[in-house]
Design a protein around this nucleic acid. Sequence first.
DNA 1: GAATTCTGACAATTTAGATTGCCAAATTGT
DNA 2: ACAATTTGGCAATCTAAATTGTCAGAATTC
Lengths: 206, 206
Amino acid sequence: MNTTTTAKRRYRGTGVEERKAERRQLLIDAATEVYGRNGYRHSGVKQVCDAAGLTQRYFYESFSHSDELLIACYEQAARRLREENANAAQAAGISPAARSKAMLLAYFQSLKDKPLIARLLLIEIRGISPAVDCAIDEALKATSDDMARMFTSPGQKTDLSDELLLAGVLGGVIHIALHWMATQYRAPVEEVVETAFKLSGSLLEV
Amino acid sequence: MNTTTTAKRRYRGTGVEERKAERRQLLIDAATEVYGRNGYRHSGVKQVCDAAGLTQRYFYESFSHSDELLIACYEQAARRLREENANAAQAAGISPAARSKAMLLAYFQSLKDKPLIARLLLIEIRGISPAVDCAIDEALKATSDDMARMFTSPGQKTDLSDELLLAGVLGGVIHIALHWMATQYRAPVEEVVETAFKLSGSLLEV
DNA sequence: GAATTCTGACAATTTAGATTGCCAAATTGT
DNA sequence: ACAATTTGGCAATCTAAATTGTCAGAATTC
C-alpha cells in the first residue's frame, strides 16, 4: 500500500537513495585506495568490493563498468586537489609569483602526503578507455586554466591563451612530480617547488 | 653429416637463427603498427600475428609474454627517434640554441610523420607492468641526458645535473607533443618548436 | 508477529584471451 | 624419390575475470 508510487521505507535511519549513495561513495573511496596501491589494471571488482566491505552485487548497483568507477575516483581526486590548490593560491595574495608558488607548494605537498592518490592521478591511468582519457583531458584542461589564472595579474591584459605553452608547463610540473615520486620524495618539497617555479618562468616573462 | 654439432639446414636461403630473427623483427614491426593503432591493451597476440603474417606459434618462439614484445617495440622506436634527433642536432653546429632547436624540430617532425609510433611512445604505455615502466624510465633518462648534452656548450662547466629540472623540461616537451597530437597536429611545426624552445629556456639561463 | 524489503554470501554463467598441442602440407638435403 | 624438418593453421585447453542469479536470514514496517 504505497502512498503514491515509490515505497520509501527507511533502513538504518536513511532512505533508499541515501543508502545507495553511501555505498557508491564507499566504493569510490575503497577503489581510490586499491587502485593507488595496485594500479587499476591489476585490481579487480572483487578486490575493490572486499576493501569497501561490500559484495559485488553492490558494485553493479552503482556502476555498469569498472571504467565508470575509475572515472569517479579520478574525478573526485582531481577535484579535491584543484580545490586545495585554489584555496592555497587565494590565501597567498594577488602577486602572480606568490600565488603560483603557493599553488605549486600545495600541489607537491598533497602529492607527498597522499602518495596513493598521486599514483592514481599521475600514473597507470592513460589509455584505459576513451571515456577515461576524456576525463583526464578535462581535468588537465581545468588545471591548465587554473594555472593561467594564477599567473596573470588581476588587471592584466596579457592573454595567457597560448594553450600549447600552458600544456607544456603543466606537463613539466607533472613530470617533476613523477620524477620526485620515483625517487621516493627524496628532495625537500621547497626545492621541488623552486624547480617547478623556474620551469614556469616562461609563462611569467610574457 | 654435421660439420660439428648443430644441424644447420637452410631454408629459403637462410639459417635457423637468421629466420628466427627475421620472424622476431616481423613481429616487432607489425606490433608497433597494431599497438599504435589500437593501443596495447586493446590488441591481442592473435591480432599482432595476423598483421605479421605469422601464426601464434611464432609469437611464443620469440617472446614469452606480450609484455616482452611491447618492450621490444618501445625500445626500437625510442632508440630510432633518439638517433634521428642526435643526428639532426649534430648537423646544426655547436651553438646550444641552434642544436636544441634542431633537435626539437626533428623530434616534433618525426612525431607528426609517424603518428602511430607517436602514440606508442607517448600514450597507452605506462602502467602495463613494472618491466615496461622500467624500459620507459630508461628511455626517458637517456633522452634527458641527450638534452643535457645539447644544451651545454662543448667547453662549458655548468653541470646540467639538475635532474629534476631536466625531467620537467622533458615532460613539458612531451606534453606539448601530446596536446599537439590531440589537436590533430593543427599548429604548424615551427610554432610547436618555438613553444618548446621557450619552455626549455629555463635550462639555458643557468 | 506477519509481511515485506534489504542485505550479504556465494554459486553459476559468460566472456575473452593466452597458451599449448597436434597434424597435414610444403620445403629441403641426399 | 624419400626421409627429415619446417611451416602454417587451427583446435583444445587453461585462466582469470566480469557479470548475473539465487537464496537464506536480518531489519523494518504496520
